[in-house]
């Protein structure tokens, strides 16, 4: 067994850290879009607009039922073939699109469950004071549902950060893509991939700490 090349590993850290902003940027952008889309999908699933409801169910079924990698390839390689004006779609754009739609499908279901879990008397009290359905959702129901959904949504965000690594298959040099290149140049595969693994791990741990802060803040209103 060969000893690990510690000097190489230490030298690799600053190089790879330079790609963290792109990885986090893709994850944050996808999460922001996915949250908005998921909330809309979830509200539709609760309110059930005819025809639209079937379309939403089909959307959720497809994006939960097929691999993320297949979806990314569909957007990156497939879309330009269908729409000739998209002669070349940017890999980062395709990755954000794929991550957004894929995770929105999952998140919609957990937001929907959280909405349904809001106590019936909260809906009734909102109706009794004369709120419209939109006011009721925005002011009372969604804020309460978000507290229930928050832990699962953070989980999806963690999953999403790690899933940005698939963007390297679309030719994007993000954290994973950069590691791949470094490893191919140095032939030090173990060193390279263990360094990138630890970087992902630390990002997720920092986020988990943030999750605990967020959750204790959201519990404030409900403390006895």
């Amino acid at each position: 067994m060969q000893p690990l090349d510690i000097d190489y590993m230490l030298g690799l850290v600053p190089v790879l850290l330079g790609y963290v902003p792109l990885t986090l940027g893709m994850a944050l952008a996808s999460m922001a879009f996915a949250l908005v889309l998921a909330a809309l999908l979830a509200v539709e699933r609760v309110v059930r607009v005819p025809v639209l409801d079937q379309a939403v169910m089909l959307f959720i079924s497809f994006f939960r039922g097929t691999p993320l990698l297949v979806q990314l390839f569909l957007f990156y390689y497939g879309l330009p073939q269908l729409m000739s004006f998209l002669t070349q779609i940017n890999g980062v754009t395709a990755a954000i699109m794929g991550l957004t739609l894929h995770f929105a499908a999952y998140m919609a279901e957990s937001i929907r469950a959280a909405i349904i879990g809001v106590d019936r008397n909260q809906w009734e009290a909102s109706m009794a004071v004369g709120m419209t359905r939109a006011q009721m959702l925005r002011r009372i129901v969604l804020p309460q549902a978000s507290r229930v959904a928050a832990p699962t949504l953070v989980n999806y965000f963690i999953d999403m950060i790690k899933s940005t690594s698939l963007a390297f298959t679309l030719g994007v040099t993000e954290l994973m893509g950069a590691t791949q290149k470094e490893a191919a140049g140095s032939f030090l595969y173990f060193e390279s991939f263990i360094v990138v693994a630890v970087i992902y791990w630390i990002i997720v741990e920092v986020l988990s700490y943030g999750q605990r802060l967020l959750e204790s803040r959201m519990e404030e209103a409900y403390a006895r």
Partner: peptide, 30 residues
């Protein structure tokens, strides 16, 4: 509904609002 007010058996206060906000909520939004 905007001409009536309702007091519930189980209170049904808005759980995400303080006592004051429970009262201001409909005055502002409705």
């Amino acid at each position: 509904r905007r001409r009536t007010a309702f007091v519930f058996q189980n209170y049904a206060l808005f759980a995400n609002k303080t006592a004051r906000e429970n009262i201001t909520e409909a005055l502002v939004t409705v």
